[in-house]
Design a protein around this nucleic acid. Structure first.
Ligand SMILES: [Mn+2]
Ligand SMILES: [Mn+2]
Ligand SMILES: [Zn+2]
Ligand SMILES: [Zn+2]
Lengths: 155, 155
DNA sequence: CGCCATATTGCAACATGTCGCAAGTGCATG
DNA sequence: CATGCACTTGCGACATGTTGCAATATGGCG
């Protein structure tokens, strides 16, 4: 997977100048990339890789999965995307993020919540203090049991 | 994936009475399960599913992956195992755990550290307070950049 | 011991990615 | 607008699981 070197707060993605950003890194503007950018630019929130492949196929039926996944890596390196993993380990991409955030996932009922920076401060600060470790909030996914499910006797 | 309903501190696994534990749940003792238990009972620490399949094959070359994965789920339900996911989302099983723990993974250098309960207290307590959410420490895997890699200019 | 209800297995197909390689293409340059 | 080098793509193989189904096996019971 790719890495956003600084894990800074995600700026809202600006898809209008992707071509220039690619060129600035010596990378190329191709029809396959144009297709994915188009799909991403009208996608909000969370989406899996498989869903993106599917949506690209609606635009260009000849879409090849490995090309999509490779382009997603490039977009992530450019800082236009980030991903985390669901409790099953599957990738979830975060598109046009308003703010960097992590996730909380209840294993019993399957519900997922977003954890914003202020709520994650305890985690981030704690690891920074004890280890000098810079937590990548956007990749963070915490599993467990929500209040509702904990209350019920036998999940 | 299976869930250890309570996320309690992991007791050291006792492989001697697995058969009885299975029967107590109406489950069965089969040669395939015996093979996996044998492998698990001499495995310590972290191991991937693929590695376990491989080790089972050394005992019984006829081992089928899906059977191993299904049995791993059963063992997890029995509380004899837990798993988390590497930064790539792949499963890592924790065998014969001395104590429940999470993981810290540096995306730059690839090193992984264990986070014990006291160090994870900030995370666990914070989510419990703000949301009544019971974090499953053994499934927790935090990605980011370690102190050493953060120090270097272009990790 | 033999029966039977159920749990389990083997198998094949599928899901989600990743990787190596040869062929193809973007684009800077002249 | 022709050239050529790197970057990309397509494709097939592989890695790691998951799932549906029909065939089997376990183990409680008579
Ligand atoms: Mn999991
Ligand atoms: Mn990841
Ligand atoms: Zn819940
Ligand atoms: Zn590091």
């Amino acid at each position: 997977m790719s890495s956003n070197g600084s894990f800074g707060p995600a700026r809202a993605a600006d898809w209008s100048n992707v071509r220039e950003r690619l060129r600035a890194s010596g990378l190329r503007w191709t029809p396959q990339r144009r297709t994915l950018i188009e799909v991403l630019s009208r996608t909000n929130g969370h989406v899996t890789g498989a869903e993106l492949v599917e949506r690209c196929r609606e635009v260009d039926p000849g879409t090849i999965p490995s090309t999509v996944y490779r382009t997603l890596d490039v977009m992530e390196d450019l800082g236009l995307l980030s991903h985390s993993h669901g409790a099953d380990g599957r990738e979830e991409f975060h598109v046009q993020p308003v703010a960097a955030h992590g996730h909380l996932h209840c294993t019993s009922c399957g519900t997922t919540w977003e954890i914003l920076a202020d709520e994650a401060a305890a985690v981030v600060d704690s690891m920074q203090r004890s280890r000098g470790f810079a937590v990548d909030l956007s990749h963070l996914s915490i599993a467990g049991q929500c209040a509702g499910c904990s209350a019920k006797p036998a999940g």
